[in-house]
Amino acid sequence: MPRIDLNSDLGESYGQWRLGDDETMLGLVSSANIACGFHAGDPSTLLDTCRAAAKRDVRIGAQVGYQDLAGFGRRFIDVTPAELTAEVIYQIGALEGLARVAGSTVAYVKPHGALYNAVVHHRDQARAVVAAVRAYDDSLPVLGLPGSVLLDEAERAGLQVVAEAFADRAYTPEGALVSRREPGAVLHDPDTVARRVLRMVTEGVVTAHDGSEVSVAAQSVCIHGDSPAATAMAVAVRALLDAENIGIEAFV
């Protein structure tokens, strides 16, 4: 039976500001990319999210990003490699403490937002993220975009790499993600997204925004937790995959 990991970005509420339906999403996915306090997430929110993930046996990933609460981590920051390495170590360690108290542990690392997009091409920052993971725990897998310099550098450094596809993001013909600044960058129709994920998993292809076919070799598929239709899309994806006898299983 084919199997795939489903992941989602969770723990992104902050104080009285609520974002997403983490409880519902945790019942649908197998891996949770939990914020680490730099782009989103306060300590109480992150601990509650870790506890909810542990209760459902959902793997916890440290979603590390730029120190940018105001911009939700979606603005590129030209931070020095040494500073970025220290910041990533700090974030993994913070979430690891909360995860341990919740009865779980950090199982992998995934960059967030602008950092995720930067390390597709920005080799110095990619190396800084890899250096942080190696320094903290070189058994932690790194989740990222296929063909990115992040996965290239991680593989060169001997880290386990996990290729990721996106259920609800538009692709360029080159296999990159269309910028959120562009119209149509984020998909919202649950049925469309579900059928798209099924093709990714069974055929290894996705239709780019120009209509061309792009190869995807994903070990994990991300459904963002912060869009208005996130829960409906996740429900539709899970229902279709279940109907097609495709198992949902964490990659670690």
Rank of each mutant, 00 (worst) to 15 (best):
residue 81 P to Q: 05
residue 82 A to L: 14
residue 83 E to M: 09
residue 84 L to H: 04
residue 85 T to Q: 15
residue 85 T to E: 15
residue 85 T to C: 13
residue 86 A to Q: 15
residue 87 E to K: 14
residue 89 I to D: 00
residue 91 Q to V: 10
residue 93 G to M: 06
residue 94 A to D: 11
residue 95 L to H: 01
residue 98 L to M: 14
residue 98 L to W: 02
residue 99 A to R: 05
residue 99 A to G: 01
residue 100 R to T: 09
residue 101 V to W: 03
residue 102 A to V: 12
residue 105 T to E: 14
residue 105 T to L: 12
residue 107 A to P: 10
residue 108 Y to I: 08
residue 110 K to S: 11
residue 110 K to A: 13
residue 114 A to E: 10
residue 115 L to T: 07
residue 115 L to A: 10
residue 116 Y to F: 08
residue 117 N to P: 08
residue 118 A to P: 03
residue 120 V to N: 02
residue 121 H to S: 13
residue 121 H to Q: 12
residue 122 H to M: 03
residue 123 R to S: 06
residue 123 R to N: 02
residue 127 R to M: 09
residue 128 A to M: 07
residue 128 A to S: 03
residue 129 V to N: 06
residue 130 V to T: 12
residue 132 A to N: 06
residue 132 A to F: 07
residue 133 V to D: 02
residue 133 V to M: 04
residue 135 A to D: 14
residue 139 S to K: 13
residue 140 L to C: 08
residue 141 P to I: 01
residue 142 V to P: 07
residue 143 L to P: 08
residue 144 G to H: 08
residue 144 G to F: 08
residue 144 G to A: 15
residue 145 L to W: 03
residue 151 L to T: 02
residue 154 A to Y: 04
residue 155 E to D: 15
residue 155 E to F: 07
residue 155 E to M: 04
residue 157 A to G: 03
residue 159 L to G: 12
residue 160 Q to P: 07
residue 162 V to Y: 05
residue 164 E to T: 08
residue 164 E to Q: 14
residue 165 A to W: 02
residue 165 A to T: 09
residue 167 A to V: 11
residue 169 R to W: 01
residue 170 A to M: 04
residue 172 T to G: 02
residue 174 E to P: 10
residue 174 E to K: 13
residue 176 A to P: 00
residue 179 S to P: 15
residue 179 S to K: 05
residue 180 R to A: 08
residue 182 E to M: 11
residue 183 P to E: 00
residue 183 P to T: 01
residue 186 V to R: 05
residue 186 V to W: 00
residue 186 V to P: 12
residue 186 V to I: 15
residue 187 L to W: 06
residue 189 D to I: 06
residue 190 P to A: 07
residue 196 R to C: 06
residue 198 L to S: 09
residue 198 L to T: 02
residue 199 R to C: 06
residue 199 R to E: 14
residue 200 M to T: 09
residue 200 M to E: 06
residue 201 V to I: 08
residue 201 V to F: 07
residue 202 T to S: 14
residue 202 T to R: 15
residue 202 T to W: 04
residue 202 T to I: 09
residue 202 T to H: 11
residue 204 G to V: 02
